[in-house]
Write a protein that binds this DNA or RNA. Sequence first.
DNA 1: CTTCAAATAAACAGAC
DNA 2: GGTCTGTTTATTTGAA
Length: 677
Amino acid sequence: MMVESASETIRSAPSGQNGVGSLSGQADGSSAGAAGTAGGGAGRDPAAGDSNGEMSPADLLHFQQQQALQVARQFLLQQASGLSSPGNSDSKQSASAVQVPVSVAMMSPQMLTPQQMQQILSPPQLQALLQQQQALMLQQLQEYYKKQQEQLHLQLLTQQQAGKQQPKEALGSKQLAFQQQLLQMQQLQQQHLLNLQRQGLVSLQPNQASGPLQTLPQAAVCPTDLPQLWKGEGAPGQPAEDSVKQEGLDLTGTATTATSFAAPSKVSPPLSHHTLPNGQPTVLTPRRDSSSHEETPGSHPLYGHGECKWPGCETLCEDLGQFIKHLNTEHALDDRSTAQCRVQMQVVQQLEIQLAKESERLQAMMAHLHMRPSEPKPFSQPLNPVPGSSFSKVTVSAADSFPDGLVHPPTSAAAPVTPLRPPGLGSASLHSGGPARRRSSDKFCSPISSELAQNHEFYKNADVRPPFTYASLIRQAILETPDRQLTLNEIYNWFTRMFAYFRRNTATWKNAVRHNLSLHKCFVRVENVKGAVWTVDEREYQKRRPPKMTGSPTLVKNMISGLSYGALNASYQAALAESSFPLLNSPGMLNPGSTSSLLPLSHDDVGAPGEPLPSNGSSTPPRLSPPQYSHQVQVKEEPAEAEEDRRPGPPLGPPNPSAGPAEDRDLEEELPGEELS
DNA sequence: CTTCAAATAAACAGAC
DNA sequence: GGTCTGTTTATTTGAA
C-alpha cells in the first residue's frame, strides 16, 4: 500500500525533489494493483504540476514505511511457509490475531506487490501485520535476553535461598551484583528497543501496541492500568530491586506477573517465543490483581468449580494442586497464553469502557433530572470546547478532536508522529478490499466517519490510500465543517490534512475531486459572497447508495421513522440493545466526544456516529439550532434545485413539518444510509 | 458477458 | 498568459 503510493510519488514527484525515490520498490509499484492508477492515460506524469513534493518529514516517514512494509512482506512469507509446513504443530498460529486470510497467506507473499498487499490487507490489517513483525523481532530479542535473565534469575534464586539462612548483610553484595547485572541487561534491552523504535519498527508506546484497543478511548480505561500493564516493557529506569522483588526477571510485565503466580513453572518456562498475535511485543500483562489472589491457599482466581477458568479452557482439575500443575503446563508463558491474556484484556477494557459510558450516561440523566450526582463525572474529559468543526481548522491539536466530534484519548497525547494504529479487529478492517480498489466506504459496512475516526492517525501519517471514494471523502470533508460548506480549496486542504496519501499526486486527485464535485449530483455548488462553496445534498448522496441494511429491523424502522430526538434515542436504544454498544450520540446526552469515542471494536457503524453528528451533533454551536440543516437552504441562493426536487418524494421518512426537515433529513439519510451497509 | 460505479486522464471554458 | 475552478467526455478497472 504504502509502496504503491511510493511508486506514484516517484512517478509524480518533481524529479529532483525526491531523494528518497530511489529506495522504494518501484518495480513493484509498476504492477499497480493500484490498478486504477494506471488508468487511462497511464504513462503520463500526472503530477507535472504538482510542486508539493515536500521532502523531509513526509519522505522520511515514507521511507520508514517502506522498510516496515518490506519487513511485513518477509513476514508474510514466513507465515505462508509456516502454514504450509506440516510440522506447524502447536497453536502459535491459531492465536494469531493478524487476520490475514489464509488464502492470502498461502500465496507466496514474496510475489505480492505492495499494491497487492495493500489490496489484500486493509490498513488496519497491514498495520497489525507490521506490528506483528515488529513483535517478532522483539520476541527474538527478548528471547535472547530472557534466556540470559533466566540464568541470572536462577542464580539469584539460589542466592536468595542461601541468603535466607544468612544474615541479610551477607546476602547483600552478591545479590547486588546480580541486580546490577539485571539492570544492565535491562538497559541493554532498552537500547535495543530504542534502536528499533528509532527505526520505526517498534513502538514502545503502550497504546500503540495494544492492537485494536487503540481505537478505544484509553481514557475511559482505568488510566492507572496502562502504565502498570506496560511497565515491564517500557520501564528503563525500573529499579532492579523491583524486578527482583517480583521475582520476575523477564522483560515483560507478563513474565513478572505470570511468574509470580506460577512460580513453579518459572523454572522451566517454555521459551517458545513466537510472534504475538497482534504483533504486539510480549507485553501481555495479566491483571496485577490476579497475582495477588493467587497466594490465597485453596483458591485461585482462575480456578473454580473444579475447573480451570482460563478462557476457553475449562479443564477439570480435582484440586488446586492439580490445577496449578495444569496451569503451569497448559497456560505457561507462551504466545498462546499471552494472546489469550490479551484478549481478556480487551474484554476487560471493553467492559470498562462500557461502564464508563453507562455511568456517564447516568450522570447525564441524573443531571437532567436535577439529581445531583454525588461526585463529578468520573470521565469528564476535557470536554473539548472545540466542536467537531475544529477539525477542519488547521489546528488538529492536542485535543485531537475528530471529525465526528470524537475526542480521542489523551493517552495518545504521546501521539507520536506515526501512531499507526492497527485497528485490526475493528470492523473497519474487515471490509476494505483494498484501498486502490473499490473504495469501500460507500457501499460497504463501514461508514467513513467512523473508520476515519478510528484510523484517523493512521491515514494522516501513513502514506496509504484511504479506502474511500472521492465522493465520500468530499462529503465527509464538507460535513465536518460547521456550516457544511467548503470551497474547493478548502476541500483540497482537508484532503491533504487528513491523508498523507493526498499530500502527493496532487494533480491527480485534485482533478478527481473536481470531477467528482461536478459529476455527482449530491454535491451542490452554491454561490457565496466570497465565491462558490460546495455543499452536500444528503438525499442525493444517499440515493446513489443501494440500501443494504443488515441491522435489526427494529433499528431500521426506528431510524427510518425517526423524526425527533426521541425517536433517535429509540433507535439508539434499539441499537444499544442489540450491540451492547452505544452507537449514536444522542444529542440530549453529554457530548459527542464522550459518546462516540466509544466506537471501539467494530460496532462503530450503526448510525455512524460521526456522520449524523455534524448535523445534529451537539458539538458545533453554530449549526446546532434546530433549523441547522436549513443552512443548506440558506446557503443556496440557487433556485433550490436540489432541494425542491427531492423534497416532495421522500421515499423514506414521512415529511414531517413539525419536526422540521433538519432532523428528518439527518435521520433518514444518515442513519439508514450509513449503516445500511 | 454485461452492467455499473469509480478512478483516472484530459480537453475545454470561464473567471480572476 | 497562467492559474484556478468547473464541466464534460473517454477510458480503464473491478465488482456485482
